[in-house]
Design a protein around this nucleic acid. Sequence first.
DNA 1: CTGTTAGCGCGTTCAC
DNA 2: GTGAACGCGCTAACAG
Lengths: 328, 328
Amino acid sequence: MAATIKDVAKLAGVAISTVSYALNNSPKISQATRTKVMEAARELSYQKNGFASDLKRTKTNTIALILSDLAGPYYSELTKGVQEVTTAHGYDLIACSSQGGPQSTAVKFLKEKRVDAAIILAHNISDEVIAESARKGFPIIILDRHLNNDYVVQVEVDNFHGGYVATEHLIQQGSKEIAFISGPPGSHDSDRRYSGYITALNEHHLEPKPKWRMHGDFTREGGYRATKMLMAQGSLPEAVFFANDEMAIGGMQAFKENKIRIPEDISIIGFDDIQLSEFMSPPLTTIKQPKYEAGALAMHLILQQLADEEVNQYYKLSTELIVRKSVK
Amino acid sequence: MAATIKDVAKLAGVAISTVSYALNNSPKISQATRTKVMEAARELSYQKNGFASDLKRTKTNTIALILSDLAGPYYSELTKGVQEVTTAHGYDLIACSSQGGPQSTAVKFLKEKRVDAAIILAHNISDEVIAESARKGFPIIILDRHLNNDYVVQVEVDNFHGGYVATEHLIQQGSKEIAFISGPPGSHDSDRRYSGYITALNEHHLEPKPKWRMHGDFTREGGYRATKMLMAQGSLPEAVFFANDEMAIGGMQAFKENKIRIPEDISIIGFDDIQLSEFMSPPLTTIKQPKYEAGALAMHLILQQLADEEVNQYYKLSTELIVRKSVK
DNA sequence: CTGTTAGCGCGTTCAC
DNA sequence: GTGAACGCGCTAACAG
């Protein structure tokens, strides 16, 4: 059905290679021939098969942004950073999801050399898969974990410091009993934020209590459930540090249902500074991540590596406390 | 650097075709040989080149979801609908952006046969590009426009009826002077909503006034600017129908800055029911689109077409009025 | 100079 | 279980 280069050659009455040269603007071809070829191509509405040329060129010119869930509340600022740099340098960008584990689209693209590089922000992709895919000439940037691999570069937000600052802020504002709602088990980001929390408590000689630690999973429902469990314990902490904003929003919902007022009865702080935060009532105090910068940096690092330049293996970006109204 | 099937064949001491069969679990290969091959593959950490096999198979097994902006506030419910159906049927899904016009990743993937089908929700892709890409055996579903083409199927939300219901609701609640803030020029969705608005006005013998019509562009800033312009006219309408929620949110901001209270001083209604709407203060009354359903339906239609089944050329899904607190 | 021949990239699949 | 053609386009080397 669809026309191939062969058909165009036949119609134009020239050799296949001539068509290729003409269509790729090689100076070898005369204007007359070029026009003839173009016309034939138009007539057959010929479109080259992208795979065939990628195959030959062993270069796809496209970068994959791998997210745990395409539909998720993923970081649009980050995507914007990636996208802008990508486009500015003439590369193509595709986003794919790692849902489905080893069968996922993400894994397929990572392994089968379908892209020239990848940026990964997908906690549900295993370290092994990344390690297996990493190879010379195929830069991978990871945004959500540590991994020691020569071919993998890490761009990390300073989660530890963010967690520390959040907790410190709660303490400064007068809280002593501070709960922590974590992300999914094994989440590197959540763990680092927790470390910051613990460190801040320790510095102020406050004791971290196990009952003030609940597990969420970075979702709104998870935050809601964890908060309900917190309340079920009978006594309430003075403040809660949610490991991300989504969970904080779920928590606010839970508190509201139990007529617990924020910040009068309890202080709340989140992490991420997602768009919704400032629209909550009260607006959510949180830790802002430089997401746009992270995305842009990741993409820059890829470009440098594709250009065979040396880059460091590790980059850390700092966070910022955004004070709004959810902390007393 | 990277190992090819040839290397595996050499190491395993078998023919290239044998490796291919073994790796694809063909019954033609004995268990012993299969194991030998697998081992060689592992040793070389062989990964097939996805393009080569797609090329040969002339099938990619992947579907493209084309959005106007990967970073935009795109419809995550829609994506979820698409994603779930796609995954359930063993297809892969990639999302790409049409930013950059004819040079965009979206256009490249559409034209160069890099995917088996596409779902388009990207007002900045031209009808021509779609028409040029449409061909037998390459299903395209469009969610945001009309287009008469044998190879293109349309899934549309009933924008006309949504616009009608929104306006009707404002009228029922006592408004007579109703402004309409439109989307970007040429937006099919916006136009249909506008028609619904006009029809409702007419039915109630209310006259649409040009001064109550402003142009936004579906962004928050656009809604903000349009609203400022509306206010600059001196007199205010009793209600405003924003062609989407993002603009309504921008509008609310503008009203707030001018100390105009919602809904006491002016009623507001949006369109889309994006996540933020219910968190606004006051919560935004709006028209909900069945986005998940639209996505799932689009993907189902693709599967049917890939299976060579006949499908209709046009599907319409209905909208729903969500009453919250922004209308008096 | 213009345009052609031939081989390549890598994996799949048919005929033997 | 193997050899070889094939999918489609690119490009070095060569002939006109």
